[in-house]
Computed example of a mutant assay.
Amino acid sequence: MKSVIRLGLCAAALWGGAALAGDEWNQPAYGGSGVDDQSYMPAKETGSDKGLYVLLGGGTEGYTGDLAPDLNAGFAYGATIGYKPTRGLGLELGYNGGLTDIDTFGPGGAADGADIIRNGGQAAITVGLVPTRLQPYLMGGIGIENHNVRGLSPLAGYQDDTSGYVPAGVGLRYNIGTLLTADARVSYNIPFDQDFAPISNDIWNGRYQALLQLGGTY
């Protein structure tokens, strides 16, 4: 009789433990249909957090193609606000800018400080590649930017200009705890209708940018 009671108590304990564990495991996996047991995984392993995120940071940017010999790489800065409706998809609006010296006019450029101050804004989509909290992603979108040329007359070949560009890049995002987010991305920006420099609008006459941003997901 005692053995039967012990077995009954053990069965009850196991049943209760399984019910509690079910709450942890009954979370749809990244991309899962939620139909069978194989599409479930622990909540703590569901990957990059969903929700609103805000990022702020800095890095470097430079120019390629015919622009590369004349324009030195310089400091870049950026701010991003976005929303992830799923753990794989992100929709974001970003502000970014950069400071550039024109190498033709010596190490210090043509003006005190940066010769070209660029400011721009863009709308982009990010697509996560794997269902992990450390998540690599692809990024693409469209943007508009303004180049403010300082210390030079238009006769030098450089002038103030507002133009468009298409950003395309890759990134790596990590959610630290429940709030902090770190994001590193590298993008190549293809210009169109660009006239700030004496070059043709060509896919190779573009701009690259590398940013490290920190912020939070809420």
Rank of each mutant, 00 (worst) to 15 (best):
L89E: 02
D115R: 05
A12G: 05
A182Q: 08
P167E: 06
L152N: 01
G65P: 01
R150A: 09
G65L: 04
D161L: 10
L91E: 10
V170K: 04
D37V: 15
L152D: 01
A76D: 05
I125Q: 05
G74P: 14
L138A: 14
I102T: 00
G106S: 08
I176R: 10
N72G: 11
D115E: 03
V127C: 10
D195S: 11
N146D: 06
L89C: 09
Y174P: 01
N189P: 10
P107E: 09
G157E: 04
F75T: 13
K2V: 15
G88D: 12
G164M: 06
G121I: 13
A197W: 00
Y218D: 07
G62K: 00
L93G: 14
A79I: 02
K50R: 13
H147K: 12
I125W: 04
G88A: 15
I190Y: 14
L67H: 00
Q209V: 03
P69D: 04
K44I: 09
A110N: 04
R185S: 11
I176A: 15
P191H: 05
A12I: 10
K84S: 15
A11M: 05
D183G: 11
A124Y: 00
T64C: 01
I190P: 02
A210L: 12
T181I: 09
V166E: 02
P42L: 13
L212K: 03
D36E: 09
L56Y: 09
Q38E: 10
N146I: 00
I203A: 12
P85M: 12
D112W: 06
E24F: 10
R207D: 00
T132D: 13
L20K: 02
L14W: 08
G169W: 01
H147M: 11
G98Q: 00
L89Q: 04
A123M: 13
G58H: 12
D195K: 07
T100D: 03
V54E: 01
D103T: 14
A156T: 06
A21N: 02
Q135C: 12
G216S: 14
N205M: 13
L211W: 00
R133M: 12
G31L: 10
T217R: 02
Y53N: 01
M1F: 08
S187L: 12
L138R: 09
G106P: 07
E45L: 06
T181C: 10
A123D: 10
D23S: 03
Y158W: 08
V170I: 14
I142T: 12
G88R: 11
T132K: 11
V186Y: 14
Y30I: 07
D70L: 13
G94Y: 00
K2W: 05
A111H: 07
Y218S: 07
N26A: 03
Y208Q: 05
R185F: 08
G164F: 08
G109E: 00
I203M: 13
G121Y: 15
L134V: 15
Y158S: 00
E92P: 02
G58Y: 01
T181R: 07
G106R: 12
I81M: 11
A73R: 07
P85C: 10
N72H: 09
G140A: 15
T132W: 11
G8C: 07
